Simulated scan of single mutants.
Amino acid sequence: MPSDVEEPRSPRVVSAEKAPRALVLVNPNSRRGAGSAEAVAKRLSGAGLAHSVETFSSPEEVSSDIVRRAAEVDRVIICGGDGSVNAAGPGLLETGLPFGIVPLGTGNDLARTLGLPEDLDAAVDVIVAGKMRRIDVGLVNGRPFFNVASLGISTELARTLTPDIKRRWGRFGYALAAMKVLANARPFTATIVDKGEPIRVKTFQIAVGNGRYYGGGMAVSEQAAIDDEHLDLYSLELSGVWKFALMIRAFRTGSHGAWEEVRTVRGLEFDISTRKPRPVNCDGEICAHTPAHFKVLPKALTVFAP
């Protein structure tokens, strides 16, 4: 698999003449992944949907499995968290296969954005019902992301929020990890280029959102949607990181742009550079480094959703 993706293939049409067959990819290491493969398979069998189930242990396996099996199936079902769906992005873009999500992770922010139920059986039923919608995909240096790609506090949070913390504490683990990261956070200088105009900022975090939710339920913007064909950027330019605690409610609703310390920009493409390369977090996983080019692929994928 190439490491970067330029443009998606045309979406695969689900045939009404041939019996549908699903490729079910299960992350056994996701928070609720243990034992889920059997439950998903049982639900699909009960609905009469032919399928094959495979587990994976690394992100690289996900996309390669999709490409390898593309000729045999007409849909993909990802059973895992946001990191699992992110790992499937390159393969989904390459094949154009429609996909469904059974949210088994900690944050499940893409499922929240799409209005998917967290109950395993109910999530499978959404896929079986067959209603689909087109969604945008974000790219950073050619790597796809669904929710948010960011640098700063979030990258340290991604490193601190270990799989063990996720399994043990669930969403409360985000708060525990965030407290540790914020205690040691320091601002950095970056240049944001929007429509050819450079903006130099001193910031604790820059986030570029494709979807609406990230970080276990925070909203990137009040108007953000995963099919609005735009990216939403914010830069957290605080005098002290302690003030972030006062903004938590605003970040949950997406209204943080009303604070004068939060710069917000809406656009189709952005460039972000820093004096030294800094890691970029895509949907909870480190995926790139600055300098970083962000862009949106409008209506790039088809997903089963209510």
Rank of each mutant, 00 (worst) to 15 (best):
residue 229 E to S: 15
residue 214 Y to P: 04
residue 212 R to W: 05
residue 207 A to V: 10
residue 213 Y to A: 07
residue 219 A to C: 15
residue 226 I to Q: 11
residue 208 V to G: 01
residue 216 G to R: 11
residue 220 V to Q: 02
residue 236 L to H: 04
residue 210 N to D: 02
residue 205 Q to K: 13
residue 232 D to I: 05
residue 221 S to Y: 11
residue 209 G to W: 00
residue 224 A to M: 05
residue 209 G to C: 07
residue 208 V to W: 01
residue 219 A to H: 06
residue 220 V to R: 01
residue 233 L to T: 00
residue 207 A to H: 02
residue 223 Q to F: 15
residue 223 Q to H: 14
residue 226 I to P: 05
residue 223 Q to P: 15
residue 212 R to S: 14
residue 221 S to F: 06
residue 207 A to D: 03
residue 219 A to F: 05
residue 230 H to E: 13
residue 211 G to I: 07
residue 206 I to D: 04
residue 205 Q to A: 12
residue 210 N to Q: 07
residue 220 V to H: 00
residue 225 A to C: 07
residue 240 G to A: 13
residue 224 A to K: 02
residue 221 S to K: 08
residue 236 L to I: 10
residue 233 L to M: 07
residue 215 G to T: 04
residue 208 V to S: 02
residue 218 M to S: 08
residue 229 E to I: 09
residue 217 G to K: 05
residue 221 S to E: 08
residue 240 G to V: 12
residue 233 L to K: 00
residue 235 S to W: 03
residue 239 S to K: 15
residue 238 L to G: 04
residue 212 R to H: 13
residue 239 S to Y: 13
residue 232 D to S: 15
residue 238 L to N: 06
residue 206 I to R: 04
residue 222 E to H: 10
residue 204 F to L: 09
residue 224 A to R: 05
residue 229 E to C: 14
residue 230 H to G: 10
residue 211 G to F: 04
residue 213 Y to T: 09
residue 222 E to G: 09
residue 231 L to G: 02
residue 240 G to Y: 14
residue 207 A to N: 02
residue 204 F to R: 02
